[in-house]
Computed example of a mutant assay.
Amino acid sequence: MPLLEVRNLKKVYTTRFGANQVQALSDVSFSVEEGEYVAIMGESGSGKTTLLNILASLDKPTSGDVLLNGRNITAIKDGEICAFRREHLGFVFQDFNLLDTFSIEDNIFLPLVLSRQPHKAMQQRLGPIAQKLGIGEILQKYPYEVSGGQKQRAAVARALITNPQIILADEPTGALDSKAATKLLRMLHDINADGQTILMVTHSIRAASHAGRVLFIKDGEVFHQIYRGQMTNDELYQKISDTLTVLTTGGKDVE
């Protein structure tokens, strides 16, 4: 059974007073196996952000289902959804979403604090994660005292510390310079190699070329997908670039 199964998702937004309807997703279906690293790409307005919000249980579809390890997250009651999100999903955002009044360590601990985990257990979880991500020396600093790359690595640590079933990353390299982005992408690759499932929404061909599979969304549907297979990052980069050219020029045939 797939870890994540998306079935016939449709999302229609109704404007104020019901004057107009906008269809963000029309019929999206795909699955993600445990341990996969999947990138989702598409033009602005293609529906990929709406899709991510539904997968993150931040929005509900008009119709269709999202199953995480067999449980339909679209049917979870509002009073339970925050705890479910905290216990099963990890999030990495473009703008880091760190609290400047908290130290880096306290930002990482926040989801465990909300789950009422004992401090000793938090420290035990943090040690190996901080070492893997190379942030041990900044744990007592505040977000405004560290670089963008360090902030994003702290955000990755916060996502990992709950042992989530899947990490959802929204443009994780979007606010980083090329050097910091490359370092982060290598770390995400290593994290995935350790067995962590990752689903990433990105505009960056370079970021997507580190994934094992790339899904392309167009007009609210899955337009095409590429499996890495034996391709190198550079070969996958070129394949993604060619597919985006077809997608943006209105073509229908992708090899």
Rank of each mutant, 00 (worst) to 15 (best):
Y142E: 12
V156N: 09
R158M: 01
R158K: 08
K132M: 15
I135Y: 11
E145H: 13
Q140Y: 11
Y142P: 13
A154W: 00
R153Q: 11
V146M: 07
A154V: 05
E137S: 15
V146Q: 08
Q150D: 07
P143C: 05
Q140L: 14
G148R: 12
I138K: 06
R153G: 10
R158P: 01
R153K: 15
R158N: 03
I161P: 00
Q150E: 15
I138R: 06
G134M: 10
Y142D: 14
R158I: 02
K141S: 14
L139D: 05
G149A: 09
E145S: 12
Y142T: 12
E145W: 06
G149P: 07
Y144T: 14
A159R: 04
L139H: 03
Y142K: 15
G149H: 07
S147R: 04
Q131N: 12
R158G: 01
K141R: 15
I161E: 00
Q150S: 07
E137V: 11
A155I: 06
K141G: 08
Y144S: 15
Q131P: 03
K151H: 01
A159P: 03
G136M: 12
Q131C: 07
A154I: 00
K141N: 13
L139R: 03
L139M: 08
G149W: 06
A155W: 04
E137T: 14
V156S: 10
A157F: 01
L139W: 02
R158Y: 01
A155G: 13
K141T: 09
A154Q: 02
K151G: 00
Y142S: 13
P143S: 07
K132I: 07
V156M: 08
V146C: 09
L160H: 09
